[in-house]
Computed example of a mutant assay.
Amino acid sequence: MASAAPPPVLQPSGKWVVEYADNMCVLQRDYGTPENRVTLSFRPAPMTDWTSIFVFEAASQLPAERVPVNIGFSPGGAEVKGRLSSFNLSGASRRYNATGLSRADLDKATAAGVLSLDAGDNLRVAFSLPDFRKAVTVLDDCVADLLDQWGFSQAQQAAMAELPKPKYGINMNFPGTAARKEQTGANSARIRLDSRGKPSDCRIVEASQSKSLDWAICWGLLHTAFTPAKDKNGKPMESMFFTRTQWIIPKGCRAAGSGNYAC
């Protein structure tokens, strides 16, 4: 069976824009035409090796889904396999598509100057990335300033040699209240970690439209075991951790008890 032809590479219709805000740093650019606008957006997760990638396009009839996605950096080049969360934004005429890359893979996209995402019927698109390296440098500066505002100083950032990490992953249980109401959305939160990796002081950074989902992200973080950050002498140090979550009810499933599904 012949593979599908690669999608045409979209060219930008606007400039790179870095948004400095109290709760996030965002790099984005518009592509396509005013009638068929597609927005490519990058949001680093501070204190992690992860950068979320968002593609906003016209709303579709497709259901909210979480599906496999192949992320490529040049025609015929190596691909990274990931997962794509895709759903229509509530009350808007736009569809939200979210995946992400490690910093090493993001650097591959920077070097190639092209980023493609193939999730079949959910999303097949490729973007040209002119001047991306300069834009990412400004984005990195924004993240450093944001962490400083959150209370993790520039001096602490410079001293850190190893990022904190969840020991066994973060257990994000879909809350039963939200599942029964079929509430979906995205949110993010940050916590403080002491030198033993013990979490405290969870703060919602980007709220969803569901109090249950916002409660669940903090519950998950505060009940996660972390390996603490380390300084350049190998000594454990205080730090912070940030995570962003997309809450989607699996296709063909229904709520069946607290945080569980019958599929």
Results as ranks from 00 to 15, higher is better:
Ala5Met: 03
Leu10Cys: 06
Leu10Gln: 10
Pro12Ala: 06
Gly14His: 03
Gly14Ala: 13
Lys15Gln: 14
Val17Met: 09
Asp22His: 08
Arg29Met: 15
Tyr31Gln: 03
Asn36Gly: 02
Thr39Lys: 15
Arg43Gly: 06
Pro46Cys: 02
Phe54Gln: 09
Val55Ile: 11
Glu57Val: 05
Pro63Gln: 02
Glu65Leu: 05
Arg66Asn: 06
Val69Trp: 01
Ser74Gly: 13
Ser74Phe: 09
Ala78Cys: 02
Val80Trp: 01
Arg83Thr: 12
Ser85Gly: 10
Phe87Met: 00
Leu89Cys: 01
Gly91Leu: 10
Gly91Asp: 11
Arg94Phe: 15
Tyr96Lys: 00
Asp105Phe: 09
Leu106Gly: 06
Gly113Glu: 05
Leu117His: 06
Leu117Cys: 06
Asp121Ala: 11
Asp121Phe: 05
Arg124Asp: 08
Arg133Trp: 05
Arg133Val: 09
Leu139Arg: 12
Leu139Asn: 14
Ala155Thr: 10
Gln157Glu: 11
Leu163Gln: 10
Ile170Phe: 02
Asn171Glu: 10
Thr177Val: 08
Ala178Thr: 00
Lys181Gly: 11
Glu182Thr: 10
Ser188Asn: 04
Arg190Ala: 09
Arg196Gly: 15
Cys202Glu: 05
Ile204Asp: 08
Ile204Gln: 14
Ser212Pro: 07
Asp214Glu: 08
Ala216Trp: 00
Ile217Lys: 03
Gly220Ile: 03
Phe226Asp: 01
Phe226Met: 07
Asp231Ile: 04
Lys232Ser: 11
Thr243Asn: 15
Thr245Leu: 05
Ile249Asn: 04
Pro250Ala: 04
Ala255Ile: 00
Gly257Asn: 01
